[in-house]
Design a protein around this nucleic acid. Structure first.
Length: 572
RNA sequence: GCGCCUGUAGCUCAGUUGGAUAGAGCAACGGACUUCUAAUCCGUAGGUCAGGGGUUCGAAUCCCUUCAGGCGCGCCA
């Protein structure tokens, strides 16, 4: 109920409570109606009077004027102005500054957190790359979205279970085995295992076109694997181990951790029970020798078992759902998976619904657009893809060049280059709303100016630098807050006050880009302030109040970057 | 054919659950570093919010429709 920090919200409430009786509305309704004016010159908050016009049978500007006259303003409000049909409120600059900065100061890194998720668990299934395939830039959206969403829900007080549902089962392993046995020369895969497996995989699909019999061989090998064949299991284990080792190195670079690496194979011994449960619910039928759940005329049926008895992707996902429900008792299970699988999740949901399970409502597919190349869709099979390692490599070395040019005296150059380069790549994937397709473009990924991760990190480092140069350790508020009355400072304060509601909004919509945009706005507001207001060397109270503001910006930027999965170097 | 998603400045995108003159970044041009990090900031220019209807005091936002693009549609994952 109560918010973790102060926000624009509490100013709205103070205004709403005093305004509500005059117009015979619930205060909540007034809060909802209050909006931010398009221009700071028009005030800090505004109440549009148009909705009152029919009932009062007066023109909106007349109503506004009348309200302004009769209204008793609370202490936070400095003055009221009537413009057109709007009632515009100007907050008291000192009160605004004091309330916002004290809230940030008091909460520190917990500023913006809340307890609304206390006692509730949420499972986030994300990243989930395929074993024996390289980690391409196409895997970035699910990986960084899932990580950011996990962080956001943790900030709301939820217990978050992060699961990497590895693609470690399925017919493609048959293909991998055939390719490895035929052309792999029994390589122990100690060196560049992923590169080797990748080339074998591409070769398999090239050869397959000329020799369709390969497909049958692959299918046979997968069947051997499913029935526990020793040789098949040995090969699978080999592919699995080298791949996971490689993935974990990538995750470490990205600063991402998982609670469970339970891939599809984890559920194979739970499938019989799952199928039994679905059968017992009476929703299955046999069609063309396969076991399916018919889903009506609107959706194709959900296939549980092929006519040869082999399990399918959906079967394993259902088994996973049952397992997760029983193991974690989550309020929600979120799947951060590209939108080309929308139908699959729609089917799962409907199967659960037909079974009469509440689990159906817990399942949430958080979809996102595809990463594509200028030439079109990426394809692992055809070898058309961009490796994440190459992108990170290119980004960090580009950052190193910039450091050599701009800040050669910087300590820990390599570490900072890594933080900034990786940050640029992560942020690039979180900047825009997730449903958009992304055309991979080197120039955009390697741009570090403007709306980028490095811009945010730079702004943070700039704050830290000022704080450091001030020679102070504590940044308490002085009595006199006149140093923050400038327009630019007020804008930063208002922005800081919106951080808690931004966390909330980004989490509810599973949309980290909301946070990205907020941080860009905050950084820009701050840089404007920085360029117009001197901080160090001003009169004592002015300096102190401005340092408190800088400190608050640093706290929120660091915290916001963390939520998105970026680090915030102190210098760069 | 059916279903889901997208369409806003030359390019990449925001747009607060229906509000005031539609905003950023990149690219272009012009400015600001003997002064707290110029990976910054300021200014100029750039718009039929895909098109057409409708709902109402008011629409980029809600409804209908057309067009364009992306993705998907039973034994792949």
């Amino acid at each position: 109920m109560r918010k973790g920090g102060i926000s624009m919200q509490i100013f709205k409430e103070q205004i709403a409570c005093s305004l509500a009786p005059l117009i015979d509305w619930e205060p909540e309704r007034v809060v909802a109606a209050l909006e931010l004016p398009p221009d700071a010159k028009l005030g800090d908050l505004a109440f549009p009077c148009f909705q009152l016009a029919p009932k009062l049978r007066k023109a909106p500007p007349v109503i506004a004027a009348d309200l302004a006259e009769r209204w008793e303003k609370p202490a936070v409000v400095d003055q009221v102005q009537v413009v057109g049909g709007y009632l515009n409120f100007f907050l008291n600059p000192a009160v605004l500054a004091q309330q916002v900065l004290e809230a940030v100061q008091r909460a520190g890194d917990t500023y913006g957190n809340s307890q609304q998720g206390a006692g509730k668990t949420i499972v986030v299934d994300f990243s989930s790359p395929n074993i024996a395939k390289p980690f391409g830039v196409g895997h970035m959206p699910t990986t960084v979205l899932g990580n950011a969403i996990s962080h956001l829900y943790q900030a709301l007080g939820y217990e978050v279970v992060r699961i990497n549902h590895l693609g470690d089962w399925g017919t493609q392993f048959g293909a991998m085995m055939v390719a490895y046995l035929k052309w792999g020369e029994n390589d122990p895969l100690t060196e560049d295992p992923i590169g080797k497996l990748y080339r074998l995989y591409v070769k398999f699909h090239r050869e397959e076109e000329a020799t369709p019999a390969l497909r049958d061989e692959a299918r046979a090998w997968f069947n051997r694997l499913e029935s526990g064949d020793e040789e098949a299991t040995r090969l699978w284990r080999l592919f699995y181990d080298v791949s996971l080792k490689n993935f974990k190195r990538t995750y470490r670079r990205l600063g991402i951790e998982f609670d469970h690496y339970t891939g599809e194979s984890f559920y194979i011994d739970k499938i019989d029970e799952a199928i039994g449960r679905i059968k017992a619910a009476g929703v299955t039928e046999v069609s063309d020798g396969a076991l399916v759940v018919p889903l009506g005329d609107d959706l194709p049926p959900c296939l549980l078992q092929k006519s040869d008895g082999a399990t399918l992707y959906a079967t394993r996902d259902l088994a996973a759902l049952f397992y997760r429900e029983q193991t974690f008792r989550p309020e929600r299970i979120i799947y951060v998976v590209a939108m080309d699988q929308a139908l699959h999740f729609q089917q799962l949901k409907l199967v659960l619904k037909k079974m009469g399970l509440p689990l159906a409502d817990a399942l949430e597919h958080v979809a996102f657009g595809l990463v594509k190349l200028p030439e079109g869709k990426m394809s692992t099979r055809r070898g058309q893809m961009v490796l994440l390692d190459d992108v990170l490599q290119e980004a960090t070395s580009r950052v190193q060049e910039i450091i050599a040019e701009k800040n050669p005296a910087l300590p820990n150059k390599e570490q900072v280059a890594e933080q900034v380069g990786v940050g640029a790549v992560i942020f690039h994937n979180l900047k825009n709303s997730r449903m958009r397709d992304i055309i991979f473009d080197w120039n955009e990924v390697l741009n570090f100016e403007g709306e980028t991760g490095p811009y945010l990190q730079y702004t943070h480092a700039r704050c830290v630098s000022v704080l450091h140069k001030s020679g102070k350790q504590e940044f308490d508020l002085p009595q006199d807050l006149a140093g923050l009355s400038a327009e630019a400072a007020q804008q930063v304060l208002k922005r800081l006050s919106q951080f808690p509601e931004t966390i909330d909004k980004a989490a509810q919509a599973y949309e980290p880009s909301t946070m990205s945009r907020y941080l860009l706005d905050l950084a820009q507001d701050f840089n404007r302030f920085y360029n117009t207001c001197r901080i160090i060397g001003e009169a004592a109270s002015v300096e102190a109040s401005r340092l408190a503001l800088v400190n608050a910006v640093a706290v929120v930027l660091r915290r916001g970057l963390y939520l998105l999965g970026l680090t915030a170097p102190e210098q760069m």
